[in-house]
């Protein structure tokens, strides 16, 4: 019997706006679905496109990226660079075999707890409808990419 599909969402959020906005959602006790896992970065400008590919490779069914509103960046311009990067990168995603509609962007400020909840729930719902993301994972298994980082762990 097949289990009911629950999507896994990886969310890259900036420390100053969206992470704090998500904190606010918490302090306001705004309930949301538990499918998203947040990864905190200082700024959306820090997000390397490879992060997104790696997240899909590691089983994410959807990736959400969120930072400060354009013009409100804690670091003045990081989100502008991020925005430019995504415009180019989205096209490339399809090319490498990842359905780019599984990648979501949003601007959520530190005061927009409710907006954050709506976005998270919206993304989860949307990905749930799309179903599990299998193609890339299958491809991945076939070529057996060694996970380099795990080797790098030196447990003293």
């Amino acid at each position: 019997m097949e289990e009911k599909f629950e999507p896994k969402i990886a969310a890259f959020v900036c420390n100053w706006c969206t992470y704090t906005g998500a904190d606010l959602a918490g302090t306001s006790r705004l309930k949301q679905e538990a499918n998203a896992r947040l990864i905190r970065v200082p700024c959306t400008g820090r997000i390397d496109p490879v992060f997104i590919i790696k997240a899909f490779e590691n089983g994410a069914d959807g990736v959400l990226i969120s930072g400060c509103h354009p013009g409100d960046c804690h670091y003045n311009a990081g989100n502008f660079h991020a925005r430019r990067r995504w415009i180019l990168f989205k096209n490339l995603l399809d090319f490498i075999g990842i359905d780019s509609s599984r990648l979501y962007f949003s601007w959520v400020s530190a005061s927009e707890g409710k907006k954050w909840v709506d976005i998270v729930d919206g993304v989860i719902d949307a990905v749930r409808i799309k179903g599990p993301f299998k193609q890339y994972k299958k491809m991945n298994k076939e070529i057996e990419i060694p996970v380099a980082v795990e080797e790098g762990v030196s447990v003293k």
Binding site: P42, D48, H81
Partner: peptide, 9 residues
């Protein structure tokens, strides 16, 4: 200031 945009670039 540590935004990391250079790192991603």
């Amino acid at each position: 200031q540590g935004c990391g945009t250079c790192n991603a670039t």
